[in-house]
Amino acid sequence: MNETPLFVFSMVCYILAFVGFSAHISLNRESFYTPSRGVAWAGVLAALVALGMRWHGAGHPPLSNMYESLVTLSTLIALTGLVFTAKQPLPMLEAGTCVTSILMFGIASVFSSDVKPLIPALQSYWLHLHVSLAFVGESLFAIAFILSYLYCFQKIMAGSTDNKIFTGMLDKIACYLVVVGMPLAFVAGMALLASHLSSHPYYGGRWSGLVWGVIVPSIVTMLLLMVLTWIYRGAVHKGVGKWLPDADSLDKLIYRAIALGYPLFTVGGLIFGMVWANKAWGRYWGWDPKETWALITFLVYSIYLHVRLARGWNGTLTACLSIFGFLVTMFTLFGVNFLISSLHSYGG
């Protein structure tokens, strides 16, 4: 049985959930929250069933190529978002995880969804352990990223009425850079990917799917959101005040997401990867670009934890570090496959 309709259903659920969460925040309607969560859960469950079907059909977990990686990560991000907010409702975070999942699925649709048999090196139970645990860690980094973005967004909203919110000009610039720069960086990254795909005959005309399916809708949605935020800035300001915890709590939530994700990523992505590499290639570390970038991701989050725990730094600086960490994570996952030749290139 083809699992694609289930994935499409789950995407529709995420879109509806995003609309529901947005309406809940902007219209200040409490009654929208629970149904939106229910719809998001339906989307996650549909995606999990679809992943299970794909696993059953292929005989291996859906972690072996770019399409499968993106779809699995997209599902894990939505799931982690829902679990993370189970005790403390955070509609803005939940809306953010829906958007991230939709975008990841959109990018996944550019790649071939054909089930291909596993190459010999991937036929190991370490594939399950290494990739799945690393993905759970990465989905928690995604949560931290969304929270960090919201932290900066909240600061800008609060700063529009009280400039003392910012500790200095650098703080203000950093917040604006994150809030305005991240969507632009996403569009630029996608444009680069489209240009890369268009230059490779293997991908055929799939780059146009990326342009019309991801880039254009993202730009339109972003512009729409920016205009609406500007027009209804008063309501948004109130909504942010009501639906987001204070800056300090948000900062602690970012730390919590990273503190949960860091050990999982380190054990799954690095240590299990080392054990597997030792079994498959005869050495646990070979400075392969993918390995090196996984180490770089680990080092960036290590810096975050060191400065936050030992030096007590928090606020915009650590939020920016968390955002940088997630960008590095995404480059490790996808950028390396396209831009740098590596032993892990089968992932692409």
Binding site: W287, P289, T292, W293, L295, I296, L299, V300, I303, V336, I340
Partner: peptide, 8 residues
């Protein structure tokens, strides 16, 4: 981190 990045 910087040196490792340069290495790739």
């Amino acid at each position: 981190t910087l040196l490792a990045t340069l290495g790739t």
